[in-house]
């Protein structure tokens, strides 16, 4: 695993150095109002920098993320979808995050069988006090998707 990472790095650096604009993944994020959205606000008030690749949609709870919310952006050519909720036990509505977890597992199955790369969908628990963690997650996800390359749906649809 670490070997792979080592090989991939120089390639990424080369890409950065070359005049070609590097690939900028589009990430749609569904964040629950009480934890992750607030955590993202805290990253802001703390001025913690992260890549602008993420675009946030505020929902009240991760448990209200409908499978279509995840499918649609991926089919339309977004490169990744991030779902952010409260840590287990902390959901404002008691159990919405557990529901989200179960649903995401099922959804990933569906994505896999539909030939869509399920690693483009991330579910993360980030609390209101974890601004740094939010920024780190976005940075990590952007890097991950940058290495993975554009969502093939983009081009397939384009044809």
């Amino acid at each position: 695993m670490s070997d792979q990472a080592c090989e991939a790095k120089p390639a990424a650096q080369l890409a950065a150095a070359s005049p070609e604009p590097r690939f900028e993944p589009k990430i749609v994020a569904f964040l629950c109002n009480w934890c992750t959205y607030t955590g993202a606000d805290l990253a802001g008030t703390s001025r913690i920098q992260y890549p602008p690749n993420v675009r946030i949609i505020r929902l009240m709870c991760s448990g209200s993320v409908d499978p279509t919310y995840v499918l649609k952006p991926l089919l339309d050519g977004a490169d990744g979808v991030l779902i952010g909720g409260c840590h287990p036990g902390d959901c404002h509505y008691q159990s919405g995050n557990y529901k989200a977890r179960r649903r995401t597992i099922a959804l990933k199955e569906i994505l896999r069988s539909a030939g869509i790369d399920e690693t483009r969908v991330w579910l993360r628990w980030i609390s209101a006090s974890e601004g740094q963690r939010f920024a780190d997650t976005v940075t990590e996800m952007t890097e991950f998707l940058r290495e993975k390359g554009p969502n093939p749906m983009r081009t397939e649809w384009a044809v």
Binding site: M60, C61, G63, S64, D66, H92
Partner: peptide, 21 residues
């Protein structure tokens, strides 16, 4: 307004107001 029911309903009969699909 947590929206859990709207996602669960197999008939898509529930709308979560202000955060509709």
């Amino acid at each position: 307004g947590c929206g859990a029911c709207a996602v669960t309903c197999p008939s898509s009969a529930i709308r979560l107001q202000h955060f509709t699909a």
